[in-house]
């Protein structure tokens, strides 16, 4: 599965990279690569079996702790 994801993300990058390079904006390129890298890492982690905590569940816990009586 990791290979599939690597190929998938790699292909997406390969497709968009030329136009980004042509754009000639370093900021664009950097942002793109950082965010794609983040997405890639998260996807790989999930397929490997590392599950991150649920984001909205954490929000729910915070709100319940603060506003317990109103909810």
């Amino acid at each position: 599965m990791v290979i599939v994801i690597t190929v998938f993300v790699g292909m997406l990058v390969c497709l968009q990279l030329p136009s980004l390079l042509k754009l000639g904006s370093r900021r664009d390129l950097l942002t793109y690569l950082i965010l794609m890298g983040l997405a890639y890492i998260l996807m790989v982690l999930r397929t490997v079996g590392v599950h991150l905590p649920y984001v909205t569940s954490a929000i729910v816990r915070v709100f319940k702790a603060v506003l317990g009586r109103f909810i």
Binding site: F8, M11, L15
Partner: peptide
């Protein structure tokens, strides 16, 4: 090259 890549992506 780009066309080939795009096609490959769609096919996969």
């Amino acid at each position: 090259l780009r066309t080939t890549l795009a096609l490959t992506l769609v096919l996969t």
